[in-house]
Design a protein around this nucleic acid. Structure first.
Length: 1033
RNA sequence: GGGCGGUUAGCUCAGCGGUAGAGCACUACGUUGACAUCGUAGUGGCCACUGGUUCGAUCCCAGUACCGCCCA
């Protein structure tokens, strides 16, 4: 039964994938024939995710490396899995709850909500896995990992131990002092109501406004404000009773703790150390703040004076810390103005005390709510408007002319002079508040897209500075190599300037921080609750020997009471140590009750994915069967997560198991559309890989991905290109179909011996492409591997070898026919093997079709190791190249001279060298056939009016005096000659230059000489041809 | 502002010391014994610009212009 005319990807792919999987072909160690391991950890896709072109690209490369190594007999593991994606998943589930009319997260409470998340995960979490399978990914799915597996509330089937690994690492790092908790200014996402890391903040330039306000000096003081030019000449003098401040965020004025000017700023020297008034809030409770000096203010920017709001700005925070300025928090977790605490008058009075010199703690300051009563509860942007209105109304805005260009679009056009046809303005200038239209950088949450608020909160941090050095060292010494090399530079730059990593998130979905506090705030970090209880128990037991200690874990918000061993219930449970001491002194005996509450925060998702390499392998409970895959070999991932993930894995693995996680990092760009634009739903240029697979097959998409994958290359995915590689698959299919129809012998275990030149030649070419592919893959030059195979399969096998074989198989003698059938079968098999890592489906299908008694499926076929040294026959190579050039020369000349394609023309050969004669004789049938020529005769002179085809070692003439136009042939030859002479000029120029001959490497000189000789021969042949044509006229 | 890249055929990209390649597109011809998802032939490039190093530069170095990306 003849094969179909093309590969039915839609039908075959699922069937083939099932066969692979059911046979355990992807299991770790499958097909291993040597001890060396090769392992790759998949960059875990979000459990909420769906396959996009980036995954498709990324996984194609990983799969190629894995399949290639597996076929080569390595003990191979491709570890798959998913990431729990804290914020994204929590958001998705909340949306689902809202959409289906179920109670929301807060109504459900933590436990119930997490139950919903797990349900959701079990229902949808496998989506991306099934999509990766459609791509042909040969990961060991039996080991699929999940970053939340083994968490305390995980349902059955989610019982890995990733959670244990995460918790263990946290505890160890805590005990080593690498993790700490502190009140720090963090990036706060008011939408998700959680801290996020600085990497999750996108700074974007937006149209903003800068307001200029007057902060009146306390007690109506005045000073002389003087401005000088560069030479020290006074250019402006004014008596002022205020200091002018510029701000882009007026609402934060409420929390100002000081006004700062630069040490060297002479303009404000007279008032440094004095107090000024924040020009907002109830008149009777205006707060006074000091004017201080610091290095931070830029004298050339704005007025040179800046307000310091330590709790809401990173720069201000530093200034406040340096100068011990109180940092007042103004907003709640949603970014609304605080509504807690006492009335404003009371709070302002407290603040005044601290401003007046009373000692304070960070907590005491944080408790103060300095938002005036009328602004409480307002959204921060609403509050901004009101603050501005109030200040302007009070006349404390800096005013300017309405024509001031700094006002931007709001500026009024300057009046036109009467001379220019305008009307002179007579009234006094209208003054308006100075609100500069300015581009400002604003921080946005990368997921929420809302404006991020710097917020002073308690958070957990990894002291990255203490673990960064080994990670830097590993790359510096080349132990881990990052490709492309520019990635290493970026890596150094970031790690050398690394900031502490905020790892706590105010979310529910994630690994809850394993720290419990007693009500004094003492922290107990332990892998389990029982262990924390024990720690607390031991601690107090030591302090109060002889007393019974009862430790209980409560939930935040509810006081817990518990009977002691004597059955007595504590009346007023006093937890503070001082309280206990008092009780002891009073001689009261009873048990001491210690209540513990667990930190409600969870860990940043990247903290767990930072442990991906060891966590997936079962650390800390791993054994040789899994630990042998560590360190892994290569990480293939997007360069956009170099910092998020790669750098953190480096730091974490080195900190935890003192080894690198991988020896090579292959970074790639984002996959873009064909014009180079980012794909986005809003632009509507998203290419869905599943749609592509449906239409063109997974192999076409994979080949396209491979061909795009040059090191550091830009990835522009175009459907035309995919279509082209689908066609390539069809080409392979049809060459195989031809082979099958003509008795090619597939499934041989030995390389067939060849006597025919063409067979020797293609065997040598096969060895050549095998070496090229291996070299390319070893160097991660996927595009080179793909292109070499494309050129070989299409350009060599299909275009030449299949054509050459036709006369041999169809018209040749039995021996030649049999030999050619064997060689062809072998060559096709080699094509399938070499292409399999890139195009697994079509090759596996052909592998099964072309021979019935294969010992293994192609997925486990042995990768060849033959070399060019063994298989290239120089003579056959030279002969075939000569034959090809002759055929091409004849075809080209015929086409240009409009010789009818169906016409078999006779040929006359002249001045033939022995090698050319021999080459012609041994390949005569196929040359005749492919060049469409008749009898070949030899003569001393070419017939008059013939077409000339020069070759190395012989000149050929097609005697077509009747058909051809002599002038056209002249023109054709002159054109060729023109090109030739340009080349000759270059070659002669070089060889005539003594310095070239002296300095260039010998082989280059030899090559040039050889080239020159060839070109000169060709030139002579063409000139002779022209001379003959000239005779005719 | 700091860092990292890019600029090669109409388009998308390789190449990165020895004088330029692929795919697509385009033009002409073609139902030649697997393939029209094809075949044959062809058109098309001062390799951004200016200097330098070198016997020789698209390739190395310096600068300029323009375009990206990352970080402030």
């Amino acid at each position: 039964m003849p094969m179909e005319k093309s590969f039915n990807a839609a039908e075959a792919e699922a069937r083939i994938y099932k066969k692979w999987e059911e046979s355990g072909a992807f299991k770790a160690g499958a097909n291993a024939s040597r001890d060396e391991t090769f392992s790759i950890m998949i960059p875990p896709p979000n459990v909420t995710g769906a396959l996009h072109v980036g995954h498709a690209f990324n996984n194609t490369l990983q799969d190629i490396l894995i399949r290639w190594h597996r076929m080569r007999g390595f003990d191979t593991l491709w570890q798959p899995g998913q990431d729990h994606a804290g914020i994204a998943t929590q958001l998705q589930v909340e949306k689902m709850l809202a959409a289906s009319g179920q109670p929301g997260r807060r109504d459900l409470g933590r436990e119930a909500f997490l139950g919903k998340v797990w349900e959701w995960k079990q229902q949808y979490g496998d989506t991306i896995i099934s999509q990766l399978k459609r791509l042909g990914s040969s990961a060991d799915w039996s080991r699929n990992a999940f970053t939340m597996s083994g968490a305390p509330n995980a349902p059955d089937g989610e019982d890995g131990n990733f959670h244990d690994a995460v918790i263990k690492v946290f505890v160890e790092m805590y005990n080593k002092g690498l993790i700490y908790r502190g009140k720090r200014l963090v990036n706060w996402d008011p939408h998700f109501e959680t801290a996020i890391s600085d990497l999750e903040v996108e700074n974007t330039e937006v149209d903003g406004q800068m307001w200029h306000f007057k902060y009146p000096l306390a007690g109506g003081e005045t000073y002389t404000y003087v401005e000088k030019d560069e030479d020290g000449n006074v250019v402006f003098t004014e008596e002022r009773d205020y200091i002018s401040i510029a701000t882009t965020r007026p609402e934060t004025m409420l929390g100002d703790g000081a006004v700062a000017v630069h040490h060297d700023d002479e303009r404000y020297a007279p008032i440094v150390g004095k107090l000024c008034e924040i020009p907002v809030g109830p008149k009777e409770h205006r707060r006074l703040i000091p004017i201080i000096t610091d290095e931070y203010p830029d004298m050339t920017f704005g007025s040179g004076a800046v307000k310091i709001t330590g709790a809401h700005d990173f720069n201000d925070h530093e200034v406040a810390k340096r100068n011990n300025i109180p940092q007042y928090r103004l907003m709640d977790t949603r970014g609304a103005m605080r509504a807690d605490g006492a009335p404003y008058s009371d709070e302002a009075a407290k603040a005044a005390e601290y401003a007046g010199g009373k000692d304070f703690t960070v907590q005491e300051i944080d408790a103060i709510n300095l938002v005036p009563d009328e602004y409480r509860g307002l959204d921060r942007f609403e509050a901004r408007k009101k603050v501005v209105e109030a200040i302007v109304a009070e006349g404390l805005a800096v005013m300017t002319e309405a024509t001031d260009p700094r006002l931007g679009k709001a500026a009024v056009k300057a009046p036109v002079e009467p001379a220019e046809g305008g009307e002179m303005r007579t009234e006094e200038e209208q003054l308006v508040p100075l609100i500069e239209a300015k581009k400002i950088m604003q921080p946005f949450g990368d997921r929420s897209k809302v404006v991020i608020e710097p917020m002073l909160t308690d958070q957990w941090f990894v002291e990255t500075s203490k673990i960064v050095e080994p990670a830097l060292e590993a790359v510096r010494t080349g132990k881990t190599k990052i490709m492309p090399e520019s990635g290493e530079k970026t890596y150094y730059h970031w790690l050398e300037n690394i900031e502490p990593w905020c790892i706590s998130r105010q979310l529910w979905w994630g690994h809850q921080i394993p720290v419990w506090y007693d009500l004094e705030g003492k922290a107990y970090c332990a892998p389990t609750e029982a262990e924390a209880v024990r720690q607390a128990h031991d601690l107090y037991k030591e302090k109060y020997p002889g007393r019974e200690i009862v430790v209980e874990v409560g939930n935040a918000g509810e006081q817990k009471s518990s009977p002691d061993s004597a059955g007595r219930r504590e009346e007023a449970i006093t937890i503070a140590e001082s309280g206990w001491s008092a009780e002891i002194e009073a001689g009261k005996l009873g048990s001491l009750f210690v209540e513990l509450r667990r930190d409600p925060d969870v860990l940043d998702t990247w903290f767990s994915s930072g442990l991906w390499p060891i966590g997936t392998l079962g650390w800390p409970n791993w054994d040789e069967s899994t630990s042998k895959y560590f360190p892994t070999d290569v990480l293939v991932t997007g360069q956009d997560i170099l910092f998020f993930w790669v750098a953190r894995m480096m730091m974490m693995q080195l900190a935890v198991v003192d080894d690198i996680p991988f020896h090579t990092v292959y970074l790639h760009d984002l996959v873009r559309d064909e014009k180079g634009k980012k794909m986005s739903k809003t632009t509507g240029n998203v290419i869905d890989p599943l749609v592509i697979i449906d239409e063109y097959g997974a192999d076409a998409l994979r080949f396209t991905n491979t061909a795009m994958a040059s090191i550091g290359g830009v990835l522009k995915l175009s459907e035309d290109r995919i279509k082209g590689y689908r066609n390539f698959g069809t080409k392979l299919w049809n060459a195989s179909r031809f082979a099958e129809m003509n008795g090619a012998v597939c499934g041989q275990t030995e390389i067939p011996t060849a006597t025919a030149t063409v067979n020797k030649w293609i065997i040598g070419e096969t060895a050549r492409v095998r070496e090229t592919v291996d070299e390319a893959l070893a160097a991660y030059r996927f595009n080179d591997a793909a292109l070499a195979l494309y050129a070989f399969v299409w350009g060599k096998v299909c275009d030449w070898y299949v054509e050459f074989s036709k006369p041999l198989i169809l018209d040749g003698d039995e021996a030649t026919k049999a030999e050619t059938q064997k060689v062809m079968g072998w060559v096709i098999d080699q094509c399938l093997i070499l292409l399999h890592p890139i195009m697994p489906f079509i090759t596996e299908e052909l592998w099964g079709t072309l021979a019935e008694d294969r010992s293994k499926m192609l997925v486990h076929a042995d990768w060849p190791t033959y070399t060019m040294a063994e298989l290239v026959d120089e003579k056959a190579d030279a002969e075939m190249n000569w034959a090809i050039s002759l055929i091409e020369g004849i075809r080209s000349a015929r086409a240009q001279m409009n010789v009818p394609a169906g016409l078999y023309v006779p040929v006359v050969m002249q001045e033939a060298a022995d090698a050319a004669k021999a080459a012609l004789t041994s390949n005569e049938t196929l040359i005749k056939r492919l060049a469409r020529i008749g009898d070949i005769t030899e003569a001393a002179e070419a017939p008059k009016g013939s077409i000339t085809i020069p070759t190395n070692g012989a000149t050929f003439a097609l005697p077509l005096a009747d058909i051809i136009d002599v002038d056209a042939e002249k023109a054709r030859i002159e054109k060729v000659l023109g090109k030739l002479q340009k080349e000759l000029g270059g070659l002669r120029g070089r060889l005539n230059n003594p310095k070239f001959v002296a300095s260039a490497p010998d082989e280059v000189v030899e090559e040039a000489k050889g080239n020159l000789a060839l070109r000169e021969e060709e030139e002579a042949q063409l000139k002779a041809a022209l001379a003959r044509l000239a005779e005719i006229g």
